[in-house]
């Protein structure tokens, strides 16, 4: 394309910059409050910079008095478990759907699509009833179970598996390799990037998972970080903005760090499928 008019270019940069400022504004706001004491915020709620950025009292209070260490451990445990189960089971299912002909594969794929489309609002109440029947209320297992194999992961793995040439697998079969050997020794090493994408999407989903954790893990011992923060923000001390904003930073940090290093996979994951 030929170069656009300088005025057009200037307008484009203007548009994009305004967009970027709006997108980033909350990250500025959070820095304004998280390092301030309650007294400092009450004195001037709208004031800009904190007196100093080294005032870590809010963070200390969160971890020593407000059980944020526990919430953090719970969140990490839930995320680690979901990433492991999703990567393993989604890879297996995606591979089966793309590379193994079997009766019923259309049905299974239909289930994958259906699971992606059913609105969650229609499911959380009966899911809770089922969890009660299983006797798992207020356990982290209950938080993990419904998202142990997310359809989005199966979908992504199936797309990637499709691009692995059939000849490779056939050759191994002719050499007498069993189906499991083919999967673990030949297929798995070829789909590293897809596994990274699924792992990241799963981590993101489970780390940010809110409504279900809120419903199923109702005692403080089993709160995940988002639930702990939400409960704190709605309790009697809901105006302790310094503490809450520090909590927000604690919740945001792990994902931000991952995003900085692995941006490519994040964008791939969403662009390749179009679904969260």
């Amino acid at each position: 394309m030929s170069k656009p008019h300088p005025l057009v270019t200037a307008m484009l940069y203007g548009l994009l910059t305004i967009g970027a400022v709006i997108a980033l504004l909350p990250f500025v706001w959070v820095l304004l409050g998280a390092f301030k004491s309650q007294a400092e915020i009450m004195a001037a709620p709208g004031a800009w910079l904190p007196r100093n950025f080294t005032n870590l009292a809010n963070f200390l209070t969160l971890f020593t008095e407000r059980m944020f260490g526990r919430y953090m451990a719970n969140s990490l445990l839930v995320s680690a478990a979901t990433v492991i189960t999703n990567v393993l089971f989604a890879t297996m299912a995606g591979y089966a759907l793309a590379k193994l002909e079997f009766p019923g594969h259309k049905l299974v794929f239909g289930c994958v699509l259906a699971a992606m489309m059913v609105p969650y609002v229609a499911l959380f109440v009966p899911q809770f009833v089922i969890i009660v029947q299983m006797g798992l209320v207020n356990t982290l297992t209950a938080v993990v179970l419904p998202i142990a194999v997310m359809p989005i992961g199966v979908f992504i793995m199936r797309q990637f598996a499709d691009s692995v040439p059939d000849e490779l697998l056939e050759a191994a079969r002719l050499d007498g390799a069993g189906e499991f050997t083919i999967f673990f020794r030949i297929f798995l090493p070829l789909v590293g990037p897809a596994i990274a994408t699924v792992a990241i999407i799963t981590f993101l989903n489970s780390w940010n998972y809110f409504l279900w954790s809120l419903i199923v893990a109702q005692n403080q011992e089993t709160y995940t970080l988002p639930v702990g923060l939400a409960v704190a923000s709605q309790g009697a001390r809901s105006t302790e903005y310094g503490l809450l904003l520090a909590g927000a930073i604690v919740v945001l940090m792990p994902v931000l760090i991952l995003f900085l290093f692995l941006q490519k996979y994040f964008v791939q994951g969403i662009a390749g499928t179009g679904i969260k």
């Binding site: 970080l225 988002p226 994040f266």
Partner: peptide, 29 residues
């Protein structure tokens, strides 16, 4: 720019809401 536009999507909604609550209080930023 792309990273900036993408950031809200990966932001935890509880954290974002806490920040908005503070930013939009009567005498907030």
């Amino acid at each position: 720019y792309r990273a900036a536009f993408y950031l809200p999507f990966i932001t935890n909604i509880v954290a974002a809401a806490v920040i908005w609550q503070y930013a939009f209080t009567l005498s907030g930023p």
